[in-house]
Each structure stands twice: as structure tokens, then as C-alpha cells.
């Protein structure tokens, strides 16, 4: 028992000693290093191109509500990285979530076991009513978060997670509430297919997968940023459906 902890401590300390050395590095006099470790200098990073929106086009000043037809029209730069510059990663990420949801279904073997409910028969009236009121509000908040993902903080993941939370609360409080397996399946399939479909449409019309094929509009307006809002809507539905599916499976197991 003690021995195990000791071994764990030794291994952890060994790793710590090795990795913490990275933080002690200071460039010697006259040594040329790119970036001093831990000191972010954006000018030397790819990020500067994303901030200037100048990967494919020339360096232009981006002005809120004024600049038009930039290469990536999102005002939220993180969104433009997630849903445009590095959207392939994001596709991979929702795939991971999809695989995890499928895997959980397999592991818990739900088709063969009797579906159980979480012990919430005695959930109080106040809780029940409160969640009844909260449920549409959460759905609305989630929708707002992903629809405005290219303008303000937030986006598909956050919106999807909020929506999934709404369903989680509903499932926990209301015993009669049931989401049909098939509707979750349809939503997640449709959302996934539309994400890949957007990518393939870009491949067919513009020549590379997930390439933006719509006008990017004016920075800062709701209807702008090309395919970013469409991708974020697909992500939100996908993430919302997957997380709801995961939670539903865990509740019914």
C-alpha cells in the first residue's frame, strides 16, 4: 500500500524534474533563439496571420463593422481559427465525441438491458416547476451562444453543451420526460453529414476540403463570416445531441 504510493511519487517526481527544466531555460548570451520560453511574441507566430486575416491575402487593417470581404469574416478570432483556419481539427474533434457516444452505447449494452430511470420519483414540485421554467431559457441561451459564436465568446461547443445541460436537468427532474433514441440518432447523423457535406461542397466547388464558398460579408455583423455560422450550427446540434446521448445512456444504464 505504502510502497505503491512511493513508486507513484518517484515516477511523478522524475517526470517533474525533467519537465520543469523547460521552465529554467534562459538563452545564453549571444545565443539565437526564436522565442524565449514562456514569453509569447505573437509577431513570430502563425497566430499573427490569423489575427490580421492575411494567410492568403495581403495584410489589411481589420475594422469592426467596416472591413468587408476578408478571407475569414469572423470577428471572434478564436472562432475563425476553430471553424475556418483549423476546421479540420474541429471535424476530428466532433468525431471523437461521436465515437465516444457510440462506444458508451456499446459498453453499456443498452439494447439488451432493461431501461432504468434515475431515482427521481420523489422530485419535489418546486424542482420540477423550476426546471420547467428553466428548460426553455437554457435552450434559448444555448441557441444564442452558438448563433452569435462568430461575434462574441461562445460557439458550437458551448451552445451544444448548454443545450445538453438543459436536457440533463429535464431528464433528472421529470420521470415522464423521454427523448426517443431515434430522434437523437437523426439529429446527430444529420448534423455530422451536413458538416462533412459543407466540406465536400467546398472540395467540389473550390478545390479543397472545408474551403469557404460563401461571401464573408462585413466583420461584426450577424450575417457574415461565410460558412462559419453554418459550421457552428452543425457543431452545436452535433455536440448537443452527442452529449445528450451520453448523459441519457448513463442515466438509463
Amino acid at each position: 500500500m505504502k510502497f505503491r504510493n512511493l513508486i507513484a511519487l518517484v515516477i511523478t517526481a522524475a517526470f517533474a524534474l525533467i519537465i520543469l527544466q523547460a521552465f529554467t531555460i534562459t538563452p545564453a548570451a549571444g545565443e539565437i533563439t526564436l522565442n524565449e520560453f514562456g514569453k509569447a511574441d505573437i509577431n513570430n507566430r502563425t497566430a499573427q496571420l490569423y489575427l490580421n486575416k492575411s494567410v492568403n491575402t495581403d495584410n489589411k487593417k481589420v475594422i469592426y463593422q467596416e472591413s468587408k470581404n476578408l478571407e475569414s469574416g469572423s470577428a471572434n478570432i478564436v472562432t475563425s481559427v476553430v471553424a475556418n483556419y483549423r476546421s479540420f481539427d474541429t471535424l476530428g474533434e466532433i468525431t471523437v465525441l461521436f465515437l465516444a457516444a457510440a462506444g458508451i452505447g456499446v459498453v453499456l449494452n443498452l439494447e439488451n438491458s432493461k431501461k432504468k430511470k434515475f431515482a427521481a420519483d420523489d422530485s419535489s414540485l418546486i424542482l420540477n416547476t423550476g426546471i420547467k421554467l428553466l428548460f426553455p431559457l437554457l435552450l434559448l441561451a444555448g441557441t444564442y451562444i452558438f448563433v452569435y459564436g462568430h461575434l462574441s465568446p461562445g460557439g458550437g461547443f458551448q451552445g451544444g453543451a448548454v443545450i445538453a445541460t438543459a436536457f440533463l436537468l429535464k431528464m433528472l427532474s421529470d420521470n415522464k420526460f423521454e427523448i426517443k433514441e431515434i430522434s437523437i440518432t437523426l439529429v446527430e447523423s444529420t448534423a455530422g453529414i451536413s458538416f462533412v457535406g459543407l466540406g465536400l461542397y467546398g472540395l467540389v466547388t473550390r478545390g479543397s476540403f472545408l474551403e469557404n464558398f460563401m461571401a464573408t460579408g462585413t466583420v461584426g455583423q450577424l450575417f457574415s463570416a461565410g460558412i462559419i455560422p453554418l459550421i457552428y450550427i452543425a457543431i452545436a446540434f452535433k455536440v448537443g445531441a452527442e452529449l445528450t446521448n451520453i448523459v441519457k445512456n448513463l442515466i438509463e444504464a
Binding site: V78, Q158, A161, A164
Partner: peptide, 15 residues
């Protein structure tokens, strides 16, 4: 990092 903060709060802390 407001985006990350929202995600961490909704997914990491909540769900």
C-alpha cells in the same frame, strides 16, 4: 480566453 472559459465552465465543470 473567454471562449475557453465558457467551454470549461459548461463542459468541464458542469457536464
Amino acid at each position: 480566453a473567454p471562449d475557453v472559459a465558457m467551454t470549461e465552465a459548461a463542459i468541464g465543470a458542469g457536464l
